[in-house]
Amino acid sequence: MTTPIAAAGQAVAQARLEIVRPRIADERQRRIPLRFNPTDYKVSKSNTFAEIGIPGLETPPLQYVRGGSEELSLEALVDTSDTLEDVRERYVDRLRSLMTPDSREHAPPIVRFVWGRSVFTGVVAKLDITYQLFLPDGVPLRAKLDLGLKEYRSAAAQAQDPPRSSPTVEKSYQVRAGDTLTSIAAALYRRPDAWRELARANGITDPREVRPGRILTVPRLR
């Protein structure tokens, strides 16, 4: 186990951004270093729920709709006061380019924030720049960066995740426009053929007659 004192004698890990896609062979072009490591960073995630309006209830039940993208935010300082270079040319412009659509991908690059063992893959969704130190002619030498990344995961990778809806727990589901018993069974059970269980549990004789807004009992599968 590495103690804080022992770690102090080791090389300091340098925080950086790496371009994951499009593929870039030249490592110097692929890596975008930060001049100083951030003092902290924040990772946040939110879920979206819909309130089910049932007359007579003071607090409406909540229906899980979907998960939100994880987000990483941090503040970083870049500085060229030792070399008197334009900090925009040395650091800022490369970070700003991460918000410009790439001609090959037709979208901004996918990047990875790396700092020691911490890795976050996403796209740069926000970049606020505050210039703080200048030469007499106005050339900026220092900039504070407020950087925000949104998580990126391909649809193929998410399809490999285990089902998030447990078929062994009874619950309810509010029908939305475009839903069918087959699509609901596929989403909740990962088994389209389980629509018969839904129909039987809710007394549905005609599976085509499932109107939006109806609350279905979702039985557990045995």
Results as ranks from 00 to 15, higher is better:
P101K: 11
D82N: 09
P219L: 01
S44G: 10
R153K: 13
P22M: 03
R104H: 14
A187F: 05
D146N: 10
Q158I: 14
L135F: 02
T80C: 09
I204S: 04
R96W: 04
T3V: 08
N47V: 10
G53Y: 14
G9K: 10
E170S: 14
R142T: 10
I54S: 11
E18S: 05
P192K: 02
T39A: 09
P140C: 08
Q158D: 07
L98I: 09
T217S: 15
P136Y: 01
S154P: 04
P109Q: 07
V65N: 11
A50G: 06
Y173F: 13
K42C: 01
F49D: 10
K171L: 07
V12L: 15
Y189Q: 03
Q14F: 04
V124G: 00
T205R: 13
K144G: 11
D93N: 09
V87S: 00
D146S: 14
R222Y: 04
K171D: 07
I184G: 04
V169F: 00
R94W: 03
E170Q: 13
Y41G: 05
S183I: 07
L147G: 02
P167D: 05
R220Q: 15
S183P: 00
Y64N: 06
Y91G: 01
W195G: 03
E75T: 10
Y131V: 01
A50P: 00
P192Q: 00
G122V: 02
G122Q: 00
R176N: 06
I52N: 11
F49P: 09
I215Y: 06
V218H: 07
D102S: 10
D79W: 11
V175Q: 08
W115A: 05
R96L: 13
G178W: 08
G203P: 07
E85I: 03
Y91M: 02
D102I: 04
I54E: 11
P60L: 13
P60C: 13
R21S: 07
N47T: 03
A107I: 05
R164A: 12
T80K: 00
Q29E: 10
I129G: 01
S44E: 15
R35Q: 08
G67W: 06
T2L: 14
Q14N: 13
V78E: 00
R142G: 07
I5Q: 14
E209D: 14
D82H: 09
P108F: 11
R88K: 13
E75A: 09
G116S: 14
L95N: 03
E105K: 11
R30H: 04
G203F: 12
G56W: 11
T3I: 12
L72C: 09
A185P: 04
V114Y: 06
R196M: 05
A159Y: 12
D93K: 08
R23W: 12
I32V: 08
A7K: 08
